[in-house]
Design a protein around this nucleic acid. Structure first.
Lengths: 205, 205, 205, 205
DNA sequence: AATGAATGAGCATTCATTCAT
DNA sequence: TATGAATGAATGCTCATTCAT
């Protein structure tokens, strides 16, 4: 590695570090006080940088929120759901989706709060930004249900789109409840419960 | 009706009308722009009154939001769910809950938006205000599942609390999707879909 | 007295009563909270009338303050100081001025507060309004000192205008101190003290 | 002086300059329009800064008034009256108090206006803030009169507290008259007049 | 790149005043 | 006359963003 490369790497990493610091700080602050009540100065202070520095890495306060969402969605879908391809059984796939969903958000409460509360707290966000990533996510679930129907594992008298929404809604509610709960419990294990009920239903056969 | 009574009635109805106008206007404005981005002047203007008049009927902008929530919850739980007592079958009860939930919110898109987006968009609200009413609502579902288990209609290997959350989460997601959807479709009929899947599960028996 | 006259008298007295009630209420409220912090609604409420009624008797909040001052000055100078003409000795006259000044204000603490604090709290007032009455008051004192000098009772090496201001300032400070004092004591008796020192001086002869 | 020291000094002086500019501007504006009628925007504009800048140096409009008072009292009592210790004769001390009082306030008409009019124009201020400093000031005069009595210079049949109030009231009235006067005259020389009358009295011996 | 002082647009709320009844 | 609901102008303060250093 040449000196220049080293410097470049060092510089990039400093840049990345600072951007990350601001990013993390923003998640914390937004989670604690809500987007509108959070001041850019709060984020800067939590990140250990000057107020103005925030604007070297992000164009605006709003862009920070966008970035939080984009980055999280990226990791959420990109990394996590790729492993699903390896799973054959649609039921297993759904179980794994539920696990990943709940484990991911259960591992970072602040991020979960921002996701459940802030990103949803804005119609604009919901329609303009989350939709892209969210639709993709919902589509993965839908396709899995499709597969299940084709494989004969799942009932054919249900609409995959609706079922996907229900599955997602169930997971989502688990997270919201977990966030608002006064008691502290691990979120991941709820995946099994959700899957069990979603697949088998509540009624006795 | 004496003159005085007439006058009193007229006066009361004027007062009520103005308060209602502001209330309705606030729902519209909050739905369109979000609570924080809505200015009190927007509400006043939408209600056709002067800015200051808003403060003759509500103590603050925040109180308007509370009022929207309280009033809606009142109608939601109070009027609607009382009829459930008359229904014997737990499965029927759940179906009716789903219908009421979706029909109610499906009948007033603005109110639905405020409910789904604004009331949830504030951790403070979620913990301080909605919780009381929300917990009550969730409890009604849970108790119904309890009954179903005791009656032998529902599986005993599921936790009623978790199942209740899933049911609620499914309904909630239907509403959110309906709100954000570009296409326009009736929300009420989704109740049948949700109940079918919730009761019967997705998997083939 | 004809019927009309009776009615007119009754009407006038009602008018006067209400105007007086508002006047008294204003003195109380201004004394308690200060002119700027007092709301017209406070005054109306203290006077037992509707907000709008205040404007049937006074053109504006400011006019109420003017009226308080004018009325007080009128009584202060008009009624009180006329009796001075009967007093021959300039020293006795000053003693009487001091007595009247302190007894009057000492008899109505609220009025005293408004006088000392509010009327002085506005340069505009001090220059535009109080000046007329105040100058007249000061002039009475000055002329008395003049007389005293001419009669050989008072030293000729002092300027009557300056001495008058000192006398007034001394009285004024008595009132201010009395107002702000936590302890309750009669203000009238201070007149003797002030006169003694003003006439005889502090130094040993 | 190192570069850093220079910069630090420069920085400090800029900070001080701006704070001073706002302080001075506030005195001017308050003197001209009165506290309540002065807008923060007026002060900012008079100081040549943006509205928001005022809040970088003062917490609120009210704090500016406090600061004006505190700073002035500090200089008034702190610097000025310490030299009194060196003066032996009680009569001389009083003369010097009068001189300092009138010279100080006579040197800054705006400050004098704020002192005479605004600080007195608020019961709250009079009781909460000025009292401490004011009581101290009055006490200095009282103790001087005490001394004079013990030294046999002053009559023993007068109450030092009352005499002190009279002396202060006389000085205070000089200032008030000077402020309100249309003619322009130096205030300092009035000190001699006041002292002469206070010590020697008006009456012929 | 980093700083943080400075900016100034923006907004909830108050309250003197009006006027229909 | 009397009322009090309605008005809307007015303002202290906040905070996202800029920019000279």
């Amino acid at each position: 590695m040449s000196r220049n490369q080293k410097n470049a790497a060092a510089t990039r990493s400093v840049v990345t570090d600072k951007r990350n610091a601001i990013h993390r700080a923003a998640v914390e602050v937004f989670a604690a006080k809500g987007y509108f009540s959070s001041k850019v100065a709060d984020i800067a202070s939590a990140a250990g940088v000057a107020d103005g520095t925030v604007y070297l890495y992000f164009k605006s306060k709003e862009e920070i929120l966008h970035f939080i969402f984009d980055r999280a969605m990226e990791e959420f879908i990109g990394d996590g759901l790729r492993e699903l391809a390896a799973i054959k059984s649609p039921a297993e796939k759904l179980r794994r989706v539920a696990e990943l969903h709940l484990e991911r958000l259960g591992a970072d409460r602040d991020l979960a709060v921002v996701f459940q509360v802030e990103l949803r707290g804005s119609t604009k966000f919901m329609s303009e930004f989350s939709r892209a990533g969210f639709a993709e996510y919902l589509d993965i679930i839908k396709k899995t249900i499709d597969e299940g129907q084709k494989a004969g594992d799942f009932r054919k008298d249900i609409k995959p789109v609706v079922a996907a929404k229900i599955f997602y809604g169930a997971l989502d509610e688990m997270v919201t409840n977990w966030i608002l709960s006064k008691r502290s419990y691990p979120l991941g294990p709820m995946a099994a419960e959700v899957t069990k009920i979603f697949l088998g239903g509540v009624a006795v056969k």
